[in-house]
Amino acid sequence: MNKQFNQFRFWAIGLATSWLALFVLVPSLMVLVTSFLTRDADFLIQYKFSLEGWKSIFDPTFISLLWDSLSMSMITAVICLAIAYPFVMCLMGLPQRWRGIVLFLLIVPFWTNSLVRIYAIQFLLGKKGLINETLQFVGLIDKPLDMLYSQFAVIFGLSYILLPFMILPIYSSMERLDFKLLDAAKDLGASASQRLMRITLPLTLPGIIAGCLMVVLPAMGMFFVADLLGGSKHALLGNVIKNQFIQTRDWPFGAALSILMILLLSFMLWLYYRATKMSNREGGINDSNF
């Protein structure tokens, strides 16, 4: 039986590893190599070493684009955090079985393709969309508001799509918080806001960091949100990369951008890893970690 199990393990892990190697590692290496090649109008790339792709990254227009993308992602994360944290705190006030139901309701819409849901937002925010029509009908506004194809619309869409990715990690860290600690803080004279600032926030920080990463990282890449809600003006890093490959046809630059994005995301993940490791060492997660 043991031998059978070993064989099963070999094939299961082997298959997964070869799959990842074939469809993740090899393409990534191809992208890496591409970033060091020369651009060619007819054949996309020439097999000749060049740093042109990487040089384009330092183009000021691109840097401002990158900055826009990063700031939009971060604003999205801040908005998600501002909604998610109070939401989770309220959720913790509910009896256990209600929490499960609420979380389930939260996740249900996300079984629908996100593209479809972005179209729905387009319909909501449009000049003849639900919000404008309603406001006009009530008489609050005379002319429809310009909401679609703006930075606001992109951030709105990103926040909507990514909110659960903020809520779930915060919920899981909040659930691990020993509520006796809050009793203890209360006992020692801490008011509700002091308990939040000195106990709850520091001890759920790993969840907050995880949530922010899980919002910021995908937010930079969700080109279809910017395409549908931001028009041409409000591009995300994902849009820029997509454009280099499909429209501008500057593959080395696109590849360099992809690598840059991977490095950026890896750096953030490393920060997160460090943060959780540190809080584990401090016992911030729970006792089972040491």
Partner: peptide
């Protein structure tokens, strides 16, 4: 409220602040 009572508790699980 608990935070205003001149009373302190030693909890069964100690409830020390881990951070």
């Amino acid at each position: 409220k608990a935070e205003h009572r001149p009373v302190n508790t030693v909890f069964q699980s100690y409830a020390l602040f881990p951070h």
